[in-house]
């Protein structure tokens, strides 16, 4: 699949530095765990590995991927590291690199991560990309920031209920932004934003957080259950698109490293000075968005999220904020099975 912004580089984690990939002349392509391929990963990975990872591997094993010039893995968790191992064990798979990812954003970690970004740049050059140019990286960061601004504006329209079929189309926009060249996405975002305003469909305002939920149909299901997702924090949604400080000159990678480590984190990252801080963050964001309840959607076997849910539940309970946890396997079928629970939760809040 030839793209105007260059060949595709696959990735699977919201910490992936898209601007570095683009600066090397490639188009980042998020390999979503959406596939009709049968589950065949058991011969390589244990069944207790998260379905996000298994479905990506299923896509590789089943030939359900576009042509990739390479694949970038972030060392975000055990499952992702095992996916890196498994990927390379599949004959004729695209070359892959594992970029190490610190846990927190202290000075030593930022410097280390900048070194990893530099290693990524060298690897991309080795895969046929352009050699690292700080100015080009700055330009790409600027482009992503423009795109991020448009996504934010779209998310605000969806929260206000003025875009028809807003939540599902916002997710579709996230998916497009994660797989298509920036200019293409930017144009489609502008088109969406220019659409006529519709009247507010109503629904119980909820905050949604978790990890992998890329299927737009899942958001239609939430809406059909009477839920209105006012704000969200998912790795297949806004977490990938957060504004970055482009920095300047030779320290650009250092600035980018600081920005990536310092932005809203996945559960696997945390500030040791604030253990369990994710619980307070979820509550604060839900309140800021005017939500009456919180839904967590996590894929099964995801240690970083599962291990933190108890603290989150405790904090929300203490604050009187109702909380629903949904576990899924990246299929619409698994979220569909939760319909009754979502409906009951929404009814309770009405």
């Amino acid at each position: 699949m030839e793209r105007p912004d260059g060949p595709l580089i696959g990735f699977a984690c919201a910490y992936t530095p898209l601007a570095v990939v683009s600066a090397a002349g490639f188009t980042p392509y998020r390999v979503h765990p959406l596939t009709e391929e049968p589950d065949r990963t058991g011969r390589i990975l244990h069944d207790n590995i998260c379905p996000h990872v298994k479905r990506i591997l299923d896509r590789l094993l089943g030939g359900d991927l576009p042509s990739l010039a390479g694949m970038v893995f972030m060392n975000s968790c055990d499952a992702m590291r095992r996916l890196y191992d498994a990927w390379r064990a599949v004959p004729a798979s695209a070359p892959a690199v594992l970029i190490d990812l610190p846990i927190s954003a202290d000075g030593l970690s930022v410097r280390f991560f900048a070194g990893e970004l530099e290693r990524l740049s060298r690897t991309l050059a080795g895969w046929g990309g352009r050699t690292f140019d700080p100015a080009e990286l700055g330009r790409q960061i600027d482009r992503y920031n423009v795109q991020t601004g448009l996504i934010k504006a779209l998310a605000e329209r969806v929260a206000a209920g003025t875009l028809a079929d807003g939540p599902a189309r916002l997710q579709a926009a996230f998916n497009r932004a994660a797989t298509a060249p920036v200019d293409e996405t930017t144009a489609s975002l502008r088109k969406l934003l220019a659409e006529e305003t519709v009247s507010d469909p109503g629904g119980v305002p909820l905050y949604l957080f978790g990890n992998v939920l890329p299927d737009p149909e899942a958001f239609r299901l939430f809406a059909a259950c009477g839920a209105r997702v006012m704000a969200s924090d998912l790795c297949t949604a806004g977490r990938l698109f957060q504004p970055l400080d482009a920095g300047s000159g030779r320290e650009r990678l250092l600035d980018l490293a600081a920005a990536l480590l310092g932005r809203r984190p996945c559960a696997r990252s945390f500030d040791p000075g604030r253990p369990g801080g994710i619980a307070d963050d979820v509550l604060a964001e839900a309140r800021a968005a005017g939500c009456r309840g919180v839904i967590c959607h996590t894929v099964k076997f995801c240690d970083p999220y599962l291990a933190r849910l108890t603290a989150i539940r405790g904090t929300l309970q203490e604050a009187g904020m109702p909380f629903l946890v949904l576990e899924g396997d990246c299929t619409l079928r698994s979220i569909g099975q939760q319909r009754t629970r979502i409906e009951a939760f929404v009814e309770m809040l009405q």
Binding site: P102, I103, R268, P272, P275, D303, P304, A307, R308
Partner: peptide
């Protein structure tokens, strides 16, 4: 907390610290 050997081990240390 140590990032190695596992994500779960790091999470349990975070939980205990809290």
């Amino acid at each position: 907390g140590t990032s190695n050997p596992c994500s779960g081990g790091l999470a349990v240390i975070e939980n205990l610290a809290r």
